[in-house]
Simulated scan of single mutants.
Amino acid sequence: MSQQGKFIVIEGIEGAGKSSAIAVVENTLRDAHIDYIKTREPGGTPLAESLRSLVKSPDLDETLTPECELLLMYASRSQLLHNVIKPALQDGRWVIGDRHDLSSRAYQGGGREIDDKILESLADITLQGFTPDLTFYLDIDPEIGLQRAANRGELDRIEQEKIEFFYRVRDKYLSFANQDEKIVIIDASQPMTVVHEQIEQRLRQYLRDNG
């Protein structure tokens, strides 16, 4: 029977550099000859990708309420967790996640100001105690991150929120990250080479400690 895989998550606001950070994690796992898959949230399954389009589209014919957005996020997460992530981990493969539950705590809990107790209840129902093994949170000032995101092209529905929204998101991210030893905070305002070196070093240390 193969050894249980590990779930590694990359978190951060828009423009923090998640895509390139994921590439660093991929390269590090490949160097260690570890089999892995990648996922993203919301999304990662056919149904969850359909929900993603609802959450992200700036062209919906009606206003998406904060509560509806929250429920769509957890519906998508439930599909991904039970149909993709858990089966892969049980097969011994590692999973690299582009966002997970911490995103909902930050965006819906912080940005939308939905009570943490509501998110706790939804997490209990959908995740049933499941948590990532290691999370890299890429921390950056929203002004810088959103400018980077704007430079990439058209912004989605959530990326078009006011700057105050993203400062609440960042505050909630930091609140959780500072209380959880499995969350590594990386200063994403540093030169990209430094950010990548720090991620690789911490991941290699994790591999040594859990090899």
Rank of each mutant, 00 (worst) to 15 (best):
E164F: 07
G110L: 01
I85W: 00
E67D: 14
E11L: 11
K38G: 07
V24F: 12
T126G: 09
N151H: 14
S76D: 01
L89D: 05
T193L: 15
D101N: 06
D91H: 15
E161S: 13
E62Y: 15
P132Y: 04
L54D: 02
P87I: 14
P191G: 13
Y167S: 05
M73S: 08
D156H: 05
D141M: 07
E154Y: 12
S189Q: 07
A32G: 11
S57K: 10
A177W: 05
L81R: 03
T63V: 15
H100L: 03
G110T: 04
Y36M: 10
Q179P: 00
A149R: 12
V195S: 01
N27L: 12
G153E: 07
G5K: 07
I183K: 05
M73N: 11
R148F: 06
A106W: 04
D209P: 00
S175H: 15
I118V: 06
E143L: 10
I185L: 13
Q179G: 09
E26A: 15
R168S: 04
M192N: 15
R148I: 13
S104V: 04
E197Q: 15
K86S: 06
L207M: 13
P66R: 08
V169R: 05
E161T: 14
Q128Y: 05
D124Y: 10
E159C: 12
G44N: 01
I186C: 01
L29W: 02
T63F: 06
A75R: 09
L54Y: 02
K38I: 13
R152T: 15
E197K: 15
G145K: 12
D31S: 15
L89E: 03
R77F: 02
L174Y: 12
K18T: 14
G145W: 04
A149V: 00
R152N: 14
I114K: 03
M73V: 06
E161C: 13
L155T: 10
L51P: 01
G97E: 04
S121N: 07
A75W: 00
H33W: 02
L70S: 00
G97K: 06
A32P: 00
E161R: 15
Y36C: 11
G211C: 08
T126E: 09
S2L: 09
R208I: 09
I199R: 04
Q179D: 06
F7D: 03
R52G: 06
F130I: 10
P42F: 10
S57H: 11
L60N: 13
L70I: 11
I34K: 13
T126H: 11
F7L: 04
L122C: 03
S103E: 02
